[in-house]
Structure formats: C-alpha cells, structure tokens
Design a protein around this nucleic acid. Structure first.
Lengths: 188, 188
DNA sequence: CAATCTGTGTACCGAATGGTACACTCGCGT
DNA sequence: ACGCGAGTGTACCATTCGGTACACAGATTG
C-alpha cells in the first residue's frame, strides 16, 4: 500500500471515530508515519483528503444502489433490492458508512456536511426518480416523491445506524419487514 | 438576559449550525460580546458550556417524555403520546434538537457524543422499561425491548431530522401513522 | 551523463486554539 | 465605611492549527 492509500485509510479511521473537525492534519500524518508535506503533495489540503475519501468510496456505493434501483413495475421488490444494497454496502464498509452518516446528520454549516451534501443529493435524486416512475403504476403521488425518498432513505440510514451501534442486525428479514412497513405507511 | 444565559444561547446556536469541534471559545465570546474569562468564570471550560447546555435543556425534554410514557395498558396510545411529546419538544426547541441529533449520530469517540450518550441512555431506558412493562399485555417480547426501544427512538429521530430539513412536517397524522407503522412492524 | 519529475523529510510560518494570571468594578451584607 | 465575593476586561501563556519553502533522494528519460 503506497502512502496515498495509507493516508486515506488512516484519515477514514480517524474521521469516522472522532470526527472531521476534531482530527488535525498533524495527527493523520503521525498515524501514517509520514511528514506533513507528503499529505499536502497528494491532496493539497485537509479538505482535499476528505473529498478524495468521499468521491472514491461513494462511487462504488452509488453504483450498487443504482443497479438495485431499476424499476420493473414492482415497487416493493425494487425497494427491497435498494435496501439490501445499502445494508450490504454498509456492512462491507462500516467505517466509511459511519463517517458518511455522522456527516449527513451533522450541522448544516459544517465543512463535512457541505462535502457530503452533493452525494446525498445524488442518492436522493435516484430514489425520487424511482418513486416518480412508480407513481404511474401506484396512482398519483401528488408530489410526494420527495418526501417518500427522504423517508425511505432516512429509514434505511436509521437501521444502519442502529446496526453500527449494535442495536440491530441487518438481516434479510429486517429488509422485508422494513420495506413492508414502508409500503404499508404509504398506502393507508 | 444575563451573560451566563447569553453565552448558553450563543453557544447553542453556533454548536447547532457549525458543530462543537468547529466552534472556538473565542468565537463564542465574540458573538456574545464579552471577554473569555467571563465564559470560564461560569463554565470552567468549553466542554462545561456544552454540559450545561445539555443538562439544562434536556431536563425539560425528559420530563415531557416521562409524563407521556406512563403505561396504562394501551401501548399504541402511550407510543402516540411519546411521539407527540418528542415532536412537540423538537418543534419548540429546534436548535437544541438539531444539536442533540447531530451529536447522537456523531462519531462515537468525539467529545460531543460522549456528552450526549448519558442523556440518550436515559431516554433509551425509559422506552425499554415501557416495552418491558407492556410485554405482559402484548406477549413475551423475548428480550426485544432493547431493540424496540432503539428502533422507536430511531424512527422518531428520523422524522424529526426530516422535519428540521424541510422534508416533512410533524403533524398529528404523522404521529398516528408512524406509531401504527411501528406496531404493525412488531406484530407481523 | 545530465535533466527532470515524483515523492519525501526538515524546518518553519502566521494565526488560532483552549486556558489563565491578575487587576479591577460593582453590589451586598455588616 | 468596610470588606468580600461575584463578575468582567486586559494581556498573556503554551500548544496546536492548517499550510509552505526548500532541499534532496531516487527513478525515469533524453
């Protein structure tokens, strides 16, 4: 593993466990075992490290969810696939998801929140489009796609958060139940 | 309003919008219009400000929820009352709830998370006890009180988070629906 | 061999950090 | 009138912050 990768790895761990603002550049390079200019050579700034971390990890996550989100007339099935994709990704990259989650719920004017907001927007858009497409088969959603997308994503992230803190495990049954619950909430 | 109250008020606003770690003592006292030793006179440290903020605001929130959580044999009704209490409190103290939420989802080793964790534990215990008591009437929960408490609290916080970001409004119907959904999830 | 480019360490920068020593003012009880 | 304690401002502390100038090593390329 070269120094660039080592920096990203150590930074991810530190950001995830202590928070972006609480971790200094000094601390990162000390953890890696290099000097500061090396970090600045690769990433230009502390925020550059964060950006690289987010874009490189998020690409895979987005691709997985995107493939799960193809709509073929069965909304519950699609939501099932999406939830499964999220749960699997979160399970495979616990640290990254933890960081992403903390930034998503973090203060709206923080550097970290601004950095993840564009990623959130992409995820949100994906879901919103799905609900819009599904509305042809499930009756008019009366502009509620946006709220549904937010609620669904919020629910998924809640379960992942619970799992990361040991309150739940992201089993297939949980996916089933969660989606069932969600659909039940929409059409009632 | 005396300086002590002013400090708490300004600190709350700054912490809620930019995050505990990102805000310096300097910045707080500048916003209040006082000098640093005044802050240190009242609170002893930056963390002391946070602690005072949390304990003083949380007391009211806890009292409200506690009164809503008296169980009289009707679990859905009680959950309805609890959710309503949370939603009302969050609506009345948006800034504080925002801060609390960001700390709850924040990195587990951050100063902020440690500060709120004991408050969360109290809320969690309240709900866990409720589910344990209700299990006499609703069949054995087989040790799932803990998971149910976490899920219910997670759901409430998700909705509050959505509301704070403008994706939902915390109406009575939403409470009804959310509790209904939650109960439906338990017994299915 | 010389020129170059990527990567890395030493040593440093100014600014900001959390925190404090100390002198002062003011209202209150005596 | 007095002392005392709460509250507050000035000026400062050591440390750490994010960031950089620069020298140099080593591999690549002419």
């Amino acid at each position: 593993m070269d120094n660039r990768a080592k920096i990203l790895s150590c930074a991810l761990q530190l950001f995830a466990t202590r928070g972006y603002d609480a971790v200094g550049v000094q601390e990162i390079v000390a953890a890696v075992g290099i000097a500061k200019p090396t970090l600045y050579h690769f990433f230009g700034s502390k925020e550059g490290v964060l950006q690289a971390l987010l874009t490189e990890h998020f690409a895979e996550q987005y691709e997985r969810v995107k493939q799960a989100a193809v709509y073929r007339g069965d909304l519950p099935l699609t939501l099932n696939q999406i939830a499964t994709a999220y749960f699997q990704y979160a399970g495979d990259h616990r640290q990254f998801y933890r960081m992403q989650l903390s930034m998503w719920f973090g203060p709206a004017n923080s550097t970290a929140y601004k950095a993840v907001s564009r990623l959130n927007e992409k995820q949100h858009q994906l879901l919103e489009d799905l609900f819009a497409r599904a509305s042809k088969d499930h009756g008019n959603l009366r502009g509620r796609q946006r709220a549904y997308a937010a609620t669904f994503l919020g629910m998924i992230n809640t379960y992942i958060g619970l799992s990361l803190n040991g309150y739940a495990d992201l089993s297939d049954e949980l996916v089933q139940q969660a989606v069932h619950q969600f659909m039940h909430g929409i059409f009632s």
